[in-house]
Computed example of a mutant assay.
Amino acid sequence: MGLKSQARKKAIHLMLVYTGGCNGCDIEIVNTVLSPKFDIEQYNVYLTWNPREADVLVVSGPVTYWTKEPLLKIYEAIPKPKLVVAVGACALTGGVYKNIHGEIPSEEIEGPVDNVIPVDAKIPGCAVRPEDVVAGVVSVIPILLGKEDK
């Protein structure tokens, strides 16, 4: 068993990336990590701001024209195996940023996260509930631990 696999059994590092929207989901994600009620740090799940340390990329908001390239660079910097969790209606469908016909205006919004990078888990809501964030992150941990180091 590799060093990375052993370390992942001790702690999981999440990197939160905001790609547009109202920040409602970001507040709930940070609430999940830092508040005493949910406090997922007690289970050794931590936020990191360094993509080279991240095990799971948590993306909130629709991907805008201006955030597409930075998101791709962050995704590429995350070591393999890399997992992505899309959080909130905007990240899943474009949310309220779609036009009245249900289409996403391509000049401003690239669309949902899975239009840009692969997504392993989707957490619906507007804004998401902290309980759902915990469940979504927990759902990808077995996938992360089951993949081989590459």
Rank of each mutant, 00 (worst) to 15 (best):
K73G: 01
M1E: 07
I143C: 00
L34E: 10
G61Q: 07
P105M: 05
I123P: 14
W49H: 15
P62V: 12
S139V: 04
D55E: 03
V59I: 08
T67A: 13
D39F: 11
T32A: 15
H13F: 05
I29D: 01
A77W: 04
R8V: 11
V45D: 13
D114M: 03
N23D: 10
L92A: 04
V30W: 04
P51I: 09
W49S: 11
G102L: 02
V30T: 12
P112E: 14
K122L: 05
I143R: 10
P124K: 10
G21R: 09
L34M: 07
G88M: 09
V128M: 03
S60C: 08
T67V: 01
K9R: 15
G88Q: 01
N50S: 14
T93D: 02
V116G: 13
A11T: 07
V137W: 04
N44A: 15
V134R: 13
V119I: 09
G2M: 01
F38C: 01
K147F: 10
I29F: 03
V17C: 08
D120M: 07
I78D: 00
I143A: 14
N99S: 05
G20M: 09
Y65K: 11
T32L: 11
V138D: 00
Y43D: 10
D39C: 13
E103A: 14
V134W: 03
V85D: 04
G24F: 11
Y43L: 03
G24V: 04
I104P: 09
V138C: 04
R8P: 01
R129Y: 07
I117G: 10
K9E: 15
V138E: 04
V113H: 06
T67E: 05
V17S: 09
E53Y: 02
V138W: 06
K37T: 14
M1P: 08
G21C: 10
V116Q: 07
A127Q: 05
